[in-house]
Design a protein around this nucleic acid. Structure first.
Lengths: 344, 344
DNA sequence: ATACTACACAAAAATGTATTTGTAAAGAGG
DNA sequence: CCTCTTTACAAATACATTTTTGTGTAGTAT
């Protein structure tokens, strides 16, 4: 790779002049030499060394995306459709602004932050990082941070968050179900933290408005780990018979559940109605097509990145940006059947 | 961020000594000073500046992943399940070897290669880049390149390729179908290039062995662009009636097709058998569960990355690495029905 | 006692930029 | 004609490392 220095030498001028041409500092350089240099640059196909530039300017033009891996889910987070769509949105935005995206995945937040400092990353987008440990580590980092989908109280104090009105999402959907006549509605998820908790809360609120009461047993806790999923599904299906509808915390679980139910001879939606949350390809291609709560994941990434970029330009930004949800009515929810186990 | 220089100043020693401790060059430094330095390093939480290191060593510890975006598919490539799984495999491998992954997506190969040189990327993984233009640009880059799934003759001359036995994959599946008694089998894809061509070839070969002849009309060309997909699906479904089975070039298309057919009252597999290729989550969760050709996409990424890393260590590697496929028999293919339009 | 070697560290150079400071030459204003 | 400013460029410095070369001291061999 040819360097600015070498170019300067070959043209018998100083690096300053070449650098000035490259940065289009007109007025600092005569029309004639500008042309000479520009022509030469094109001829030798000059590309500036970014490491050197970073060093000289003390900025990296890198946006870091830090993902804390969870034990039980996918062994590799990027494969999660949510994550890949999110990253897609970030990448596109960041790239168009002349930045690069660098992804860090680990369970070890310390390690993540070492990379981040090592590369002198200009700004950081956090996903799934904000447990107590993650917050402690992240606050040490003195550059702009935006996090996605965090409900950590402590985290919200420190960082800008881009999230979703999760609570309203499930509220609207469960309201839609109760309007259809459903009264016995279960909620299926694998945990009760963060996003899942918010969705659970919306479900409870809508349920309460019908006068129905939430019992702990209405929470179907699925175990997604590969060695437990089959047994878990078996249990879910038996317990599901007591309900006319299931509100699932994600499309993935909704589709998984529908398949498990159909495998056991239960028809969807005639037997049980099932609703999802996210609005993936998965649910739209499935038959019956999934009734679900739409969120624009890519946009989440775009907004997170845009917000970060604005912070990098010195602008102040909102502390919380909440994206809206929207009901997508398809075929997996209908009016309730008579209860299979009537009288329960 | 504290620098080596500052540390040296504070401890009244030279940067050389600190650097030697950091790099564990025993024998170059006394036991005592080593301890002093190590302790101090820990205390101030020193992290080396990677840009500076890159500059000094003329290596970046970055593995670039270059993806040439296609017009008609997803607006953002990372969202493609294949791509995200591939990237997942690469990221994991590369990270464990102490490298970083940097993704470049563009339709403009020139632009991609400018980034690559700018960052002084140590090695490159190419996907979908090797059209004529891409090859011209890529061969200018003088560091190791590994490409994934390329069938470009010219490309194979220049670079190591990690691919799949696509031809055998469809061959095996179509053989399985003909063994079940199918004779009229269509092939569904959106193009006839590269991977798709190889899969088409395998299909033709298996077909030929039954004595059946391939007619151009047996190739169902789907148009996946958002504004054409509906009309295209309508056409596909009508044309599909002349067959007892469809070999689809991907799980995504298989599932899309199954839904379209079922929406028109055709039962799968009783009405028409459908087979896919890739073995996604999509197909395994669908009902009827998709009979498909399995490939290990993540492994493709891992192998590509490993091969590249070996090249970086100076090892010679094979020019072509072909991963195997495997039939996954589920529920979407069964023995043929009587032909709906018998006598055609 | 002299020369050589090993040790432990320091000083300096190099990596490729950007930026700051410096400097001739030309032109303008009085 | 002298001073001041502008123009167009050059030289030097800084960025944080790594690497090469240098140096003083102590120990060892002759």
């Amino acid at each position: 790779m040819i360097t600015i220095k070498e170019i300067a030498a070959r043209l018998n001028m100083s690096t300053t002049t070449v650098s000035n041409v490259i940065h289009g500092k007109d007025g600092e350089v005569s029309e004639e030499t500008r042309k000479t240099v520009e022509e030469f640059l094109r001829k030798v196909d000059y590309v500036p060394n970014i490491s050197a530039r970073n060093l000289a300017q003390n900025e990296s033009k890198i946006i870091g995306v830090a993902l804390k891996a969870r034990e039980d889910k996918y062994e590799n987070l990027i494969v999660d459709p949510f994550v890949s769509e999110l990253i897609g949105g970030i990448e596109e935005t960041v790239r168009n602004a002349g930045y690069f995206m660098m992804i860090y995945i680990s369970r070890d937040t310390e390690k993540i932050m070492r990379y981040v400092s090592g590369w002198n990353v200009d700004g950081l987008i956090l996903f799934g990082m904000l447990d107590d440990d993650g917050i402690r580590v992240s606050t040490r980092y003195k550059k702009p941070i935006v996090c996605v989908d965090t409900y950590s109280i402590e985290g919200l104090k420190h960082f800008t968050n881009v999230g979703l009105d999760d609570e309203k999402g499930t509220y609207d959907m469960v309201k839609y179900m109760t309007d259809q006549g459903h009264r016995r509605i279960a909620f299926l998820s694998d945990n009760k933290k963060g996003v899942d908790l918010a969705r659970l809360t919306g479900y409870k609120r809508a349920l309460k408005e019908t006068g129905a009461e939430f019992h702990e047993e209405d929470f179907l806790q699925i175990k997604p780990a590969a060695d437990e999923i089959e047994a878990s599904l078996e249990e879910m299906c038996t317990r599901a018979l007591k309900y006319t509808a299931i509100m699932c915390v994600s499309d993935l679980y909704a589709v998984t559940m529908m398949s498990a139910l159909m495998d056991r001879g239960i028809r969807i939606p005639e037997g049980i109605s099932v609703a999802g949350f996210d609005d993936n390809l998965l649910g739209s291609l499935y038959r019956p097509a999934l009734t679900t709560v739409h969120q624009d994941v890519k946009k989440k990434g775009v907004v997170a990145a845009e917000t970060l970029l604005r912070r990098l330009k010195g602008e102040e930004t909102e502390r919380q940006i909440i994206l809206p949800t929207r009901l997508v009515i398809r075929d997996s929810v209908t009016k309730p059947r008579k209860l299979a186990l009537a009288g329960l």
